[in-house]
C-alpha cells in the first residue's frame, strides 16, 4: 500500500512532475547558473579589475546578470511541454488552469530561480561586493526571482506557440522586469552605502506577492490564446 500523499491534488501532481523532470535533466537546470557565472565574468573584463571599481558596480552588475540569466531560463517554462504535447493536456484538463500555472511557476522558481540566489554570494565575492551587501542581495534576489518567474510566465505563455519565440519572449518580458531590477539593485546599494535597505526589500516582497497573485490567471489566459490556433 502506498503511503498517504502529503501533497494531494492537481497542484502537487504537476509540481512534482516538473521537479522530477528537472532532476532527470540536471544538466539543463545548471545552465542558468553557468550563464550567471560567465556573464559576471564579463563585468571585470569589460569594466575594470580593480576591487574599488568592481565594488561600486557590483550591486547593479550582479542584479543585471541574474535578471538576464532568469530571462534565458524562461524559455524552458512551457516550451518543452508545448513540444511534447503535454501542455495541451494541462490546458484542456478540468482543473483550474491558474492553479496549474502557479504550480509550474513554483517549480520553475525552485529549479531556475533558487540556484541563482544560491550562486549570488559566490558572484558577490568575486566582484568584491562589501560584506553588508550580502544579506539584502540574497533576500532581494529570493523575492525578485519569484517576481521574474511569475511575470516571465505570462511572457512565456504568450510566445510559446510562436515560431522563433525565444528572442521575442525577452523583448516583451524585459520592460516588465525593470521595476524589480530597480528595487533589487537599490536595496543592495543602500546597504553598501550604510542606509537601511528594508524599504526597498519590502517593495520587492510586495511586488512578488502582487505578481504571484496576478500572473497565474494572466498566464492561464495567455496559454489558452496561444494554444487556440
Amino acid at each position: 500500500m502506498r503511503p498517504a500523499d502529503p501533497l494531494p491534488g492537481p497542484f502537487a501532481a504537476l509540481f512534482r512532475r516538473d521537479l522530477a523532470l528537472a532532476r532527470r535533466h540536471a544538466a539543463e537546470a545548471v545552465q542558468p547558473v553557468l550563464f550567471f557565472a560567465m556573464a559576471a565574468t564579463l563585468v571585470p573584463l569589460g569594466l575594470a579589475p580593480e576591487p574599488e571599481t568592481l565594488a561600486r558596480f557590483a550591486p547593479g552588475a550582479i542584479w543585471m546578470m541574474a535578471l538576464l540569466a532568469a530571462l534565458l531560463a524562461l524559455d524552458g517554462l512551457f516550451a518543452a511541454d508545448y513540444r511534447d504535447g503535454s501542455l495541451e493536456q494541462v490546458v484542456s484538463s478540468p482543473q483550474p488552469l491558474w492553479l496549474l500555472v502557479l504550480a509550474k511557476i513554483f517549480a520553475h522558481w525552485l529549479v531556475a530561480g533558487l540556484p541563482l540566489v544560491m550562486a549570488a554570494p559566490v558572484v558577490g565575492l568575486a566582484l568584491h561586493l562589501p560584506a553588508v551587501g550580502f544579506a539584502p542581495l540574497l533576500l532581494g534576489l529570493a523575492f525578485g526571482t519569484a517576481s521574474l518567474s511569475a511575470l516571465g510566465a505570462v511572457g512565456a505563455a504568450l510566445t510559446v506557440a510562436a515560431p522563433r519565440g525565444g528572442l521575442l519572449l525577452s523583448l516583451i518580458a524585459m520592460p516588465l522586469y525593470m521595476p524589480v531590477l530597480i528595487f533589487g539593485a537599490a536595496a543592495v546599494r543602500q546597504a553598501v552605502e550604510g542606509l537601511d535597505p528594508s524599504g526597498a526589500l519590502a517593495v520587492l516582497g510586495a511586488l512578488a506577492a502582487l505578481f504571484l497573485t496576478l500572473a497565474p490567471p494572466a498566464a492561464a489566459g495567455a496559454l489558452r490564446v496561444a494554444l487556440d490556433g
Binding site: 504568450l158 510566445t159 515560431p163 521575442l168 495567455a222 490564446v225 496561444a226 487556440d228 490556433g229
Partner: peptide, 18 residues
C-alpha cells in the same frame, strides 16, 4: 512584435493580453 509573431485571431488576442 507579438501581434506579428502569430497569424489571424491568435495574434490579436495575444497582443490584447500583453
Amino acid at each position: 512584435a507579438l501581434g506579428q509573431a502569430y497569424r489571424g485571431e491568435r495574434a490579436d488576442r495575444a497582443a490584447a493580453v500583453l
